[in-house]
Design a protein around this nucleic acid. Structure first.
Lengths: 219, 219
DNA sequence: CCGCCAGCTGTATGGTCGTTCAGCGAATGC
DNA sequence: GCATTCGCTGAACGACCATACAGCTGGCGG
């Protein structure tokens, strides 16, 4: 258990996982080859198998890693107001930077989930988590009076689905739906669902430092 | 150009196309094999290649055929009122029977479109057509006073995207979004977008024979 | 020092398919 | 009737890849 030399293999492993994620994004499940992953990681194909037993193993590890990233993306920094938090969530789902917004990858997962139970479960758990987050935000807003929402359950389903649908348009290069437009469209829909002024929500979405309460961690 | 014998090969061809569609739905682009198509069509693998030059050729023919079906699904029967037409569109997009609602297939096309320009173009043209149909309906409703809609362009983008997103949930077997629930959720969103009573739209959606005007074919 | 083992690699192996090809029967044109 | 073409097939062929394997190397425990 030496500290220095033991790190190199682990580092190598991480590199392969990162490479696998990249390959998945670039070529999809259907186009991903062991050789691609190895090349992207700067190693030999055999090493990928050595560490992950098979190509599927490597891709599974890649998915697990983005799953982790997804979850950590979702923890709020500070305790923003519901309005600010809603804008924050819009930024997360809309921006293509964070894992939540890795839409190419999610689309791949969707299609794989049509036939692969493992992928279906992954997608499901991430989706549940996302909806819970949305739901908690809406409930908090309703509780403190800043939102009005007759049917939060339906609102969450619609907003979550709308996000998925908009992402498809963006990812497919729709000329009418840029990433910025996607954000706008979603925020307006969210504003309508929770009965706030779209302009207010839009400006809240742009604001990084929101009103901080410190009492509750959850609504 | 005999009438009887010439039909058999053509019939065979159609059978292969239908088989290819089925295979695409069952196994997706990634899992589709010439042998599968041949087996489903009750012919030899070689015949598939004989008629379509390659597997890709056969799959392309399959897509072309669903494209045709999609377009013919979209022509309205009669000249329904905008409200009834909106319900009709919901039925089309929501039911899994007609080509418009072949969501498994569309999801496959989406992911393929991420990397294949031909698939991207197919998806784009179908999407444009769908949005135009929605837009025409909304415009007609606004024109005759039954709808109120501040930003029809945005409404169309949101409703089209929402449909896509809801379909993903349904296709992935989400326990909270059955096909019936999808219909409901979409209709409510549509009602909100065009400022009508959800209950009215829901009942119009269930009605097959709507109020028939005969003046204009388009709004 | 020595033997061992984890980490790593290049090459072989085997399986899965897409595509090709030579040919066969039947209908068709002459 | 005869040659030809069309529709169709089974049996190869060969490309592409995942995986297995034998071996090399460098550091670590003894």
């Amino acid at each position: 258990m030496s500290t220095l030399s033991a790190k190199a293999p682990e580092e190598r492993r991480r590199r392969i996982i990162a490479a696998a994620v990249q390959v998945l994004v670039d070529k999809g499940f259907a186009g991903a080859r062991i050789a691609d992953v190895a090349a992207a990681a700067g190693t030999s194909p055999a090493l990928v198998v050595y560490h992950f037993k098979s190509l599927d193993g490597a891709l599974a590890a890649a998915l697990a890693s983005v799953e982790d990233a997804f979850y950590s993306d979702l923890v709020p920094d500070g305790a923003p107001s519901p309005t600010a938090r809603l804008g924050e969530l819009a930024r997360l789902g809309t921006g293509s930077g964070p894992s939540v917004g890795d839409w190419t990858l999610w689309m791949e997962v969707w299609v794989r989930a049509l036939r692969d139970p493992q992928a279906a479960e992954l997608r499901r758990s991430l989706d549940v988590r996302w909806r819970e987050t949305l739901r908690a935000t809406i409930d908090a807003g309703v509780a403190d009076g800043s939102f009005r929402c007759a049917d939060p359950q339906a609102a969450v389903l619609r907003l979550a689905s709308l996000l998925d649908g908009l992402a498809v348009q963006v990812e497919l290069g729709d000329p009418d739906v840029s990433a910025a437009r996607m954000n706008e469209l979603w925020l307006d829909a969210a504003a309508a669902e929770v009965g706030v002024d779209p302009a207010e929500l839009r400006s809240a979405a742009g604001t990084r430092d929101a009103v901080r309460g410190d009492a509750q961690a959850r609504g």
